[in-house]
């Protein structure tokens, strides 16, 4: 009966993909929470919270994102080998993760600068970028699970 759902060989990459995606979601939300808290705190506490947001983004969000994206590529390679056309719901995943990687890089640079400069005005962009990425992740998991149009 399981064969009707997916081959056994898909389980490990699927698990790693979902694990990476949930970790990416939780970590991005943590960065947003710390970033917003930093915008409302006194200067000393704000710098500490921004530094924490940067460390969590660098040491947890980036590895989680890599696990999610690499496992996605692994499972797409198995399910749609070679030049097989991928369905729209898979393409949504690429749309979210590829510009998403760029967004995370920008977020990291801004978070790093915000953690070093108390008067860095663009620090406010960090939690908003994280929030935008949370919404994008929501769109991706809707497409991945509902598979609309397929």
């Amino acid at each position: 009966m399981l064969a009707a759902i997916r081959p056994d060989s898909f389980n490990l990459p699927l698990f790693l993909h979902v694990l990476g995606a949930t970790l990416t979601f939780g970590t991005t939300a943590t960065v947003a929470i710390l970033g917003f808290a930093g915008t409302r705190a006194d200067p000393e506490r704000s710098l500490w919270l921004r530094g924490l947001a940067f460390k969590i983004a660098f040491f947890v969000l980036v590895p989680a994102f890599i696990v999610m994206r690499a496992a996605a590529q692994w499972i797409v390679g198995k399910e749609y080998p070679g030049s097989t056309k991928t369905p729209g719901w898979v393409d949504v995943g690429f749309i979210v993760t590829e510009p998403g990687a760029l967004l995370i890089i920008v977020l990291l640079v801004l978070a790093f600068l915000a953690s070093r400069r108390p008067a860095f005005r663009a620090a406010v962009a960090v939690p908003w970028l994280a929030t935008i990425y949370l919404v994008a992740l929501g769109v991706a998991w809707f497409a991945m699970t509902g598979k609309p149009g397929s």
Binding site: V18, A21, F25, G26, T30, L137, G146
Partner: peptide, 23 residues
């Protein structure tokens, strides 16, 4: 498919919340 969307949304919320609290 709709049930799966809400179930997976629950999983993201649950594990996401656990990750936030853990971090």
């Amino acid at each position: 498919e709709w049930l799966l969307v809400f179930h997976v949304t629950g999983a993201f919320f649950l594990i996401g919340g656990v990750v936030i609290a853990g971090l």
